[in-house]
């Protein structure tokens, strides 16, 4: 019983981190209809930047989120301006290929800079745990989960309570009308891309402490993140959070009770099943397809 409770708690904490990383993916899709396959690569970039700050300057990796996030935001913003904005209105399948190419370039770049060997960030508390009532919760997971929740709440506040948030939602709902009421959709898109990437970077900073990583880990991450947003409904932030929590729990349960080898198959199986049975996901809405714009 305690073991099950512990697995569930760990699953939820992990789910919080997943939610943070996936929120950026779903936000970018919601606003610009771009499925950012490079999202996992940006997440790993966040992990590497964190590693670098920790290794070179001794900065605590989890507090380092404060620095990592703006750095990754900058990279995301520049990336948007350079390669994504020219094809923002291209068919979605081409932007999928473009961001896939971007992921490969990032993978190669990280391999050049930090090498292809397994990298681990191990702060002093890496092996410590909180124990109470028979529960055994690693400190890094607890801190990581909490930080993820704080960043997510901040993101949610920005999206719902600020002018920028309203502009973003307006641009997501109807870009043409948003332009008419004075929102520069192109600038909003660049900001959203940066914010989305920054969320991935923050997620990467946290997961970098939890698991060792290599540049090639991004495939696993993008599979996981896509599974989450597809499950929750592409473009829906609440859906992503819900999907992430379910996913975190499902994954920890599978590796605890079935086998870690098959746990890697879970995301792919979920993507397959969801897109076939309920393509709009849990909280997504189907668009009216017959109303063709003149």
């Amino acid at each position: 019983m305690t073991e099950l409770l512990q697995t569930l708690l760990l699953g939820l904490l992990l789910g919080g981190v997943y939610a943070l990383a996936a929120s950026g993916l779903t936000l970018i899709f919601g606003v610009m209809r771009v499925i950012n396959i490079a999202h996992g690569a940006f997440l790993i970039l966040g992990a590497f930047v964190t590693y670098w700050l920790w290794d070179a300057f001794g900065l605590d990796p989890l507090l380092g989120v404060v620095l990592t996030t703006p750095i990754v935001f900058g990279v995301g913003w520049i990336t948007y301006k350079l390669v994504v904005s020219p094809v923002r209105t291209a068919p979605m399948a081409s932007t999928v290929l473009l961001t896939f190419g971007l992921a490969l370039v990032l993978e190669g770049a990280m391999g050049e800079i930090w090498g292809n060997n397994s990298t681990a960030i191990r702060p002093s508390y890496a092996d410590e745990s909180f124990t109470f009532g028979g529960l055994f919760l690693p400190k890094a997971q607890v801190y990581g989960g909490l930080i993820a929740v704080v960043v997510l709440v901040l993101l949610w506040l920005v999206l719902t309570k600020t002018w920028l948030g309203r502009a973003i939602r307006a641009a997501a709902t109807n870009p043409a009308s948003a332009e008419l009421v004075g929102i520069k959709v192109a600038s909003v898109a660049a900001l959203v891309f940066g914010i989305g990437i920054a969320a991935a970077g923050a997620g990467g900073a946290i997961t970098g402490v939890l698991y060792p990583f290599v540049p090639g880990s991004h495939y696993q991450w993008i599979a996981r993140l896509l599974a989450i947003v597809v499950l929750g409904g592409l473009g829906s932030l609440n859906g992503a959070v819900l999907g992430a929590l379910m996913f975190g729990v499902a994954e920890t349960l599978t590796s605890a009770y079935v086998s870690p080898a098959w746990a890697t198959a879970v995301p792919y199986a979920i993507v397959f099943a969801v897109l076939l049975i309920r393509p709009q996901g849990l909280l997504g809405t189907r668009l009216r397809e017959d109303a063709v714009a003149a």
Partner: peptide
């Protein structure tokens, strides 16, 4: 699969398909 999903969802599914086949082979 293509009967149910188009465009980007289909691209995603094909990636999932590839990895699923790989996991099975492993």
């Amino acid at each position: 699969v293509s009967l149910r999903s188009r465009g980007p969802s289909f691209v995603i599914i094909t990636v999932a398909f590839l990895f699923l086949v790989q996991v099975i082979a492993v």
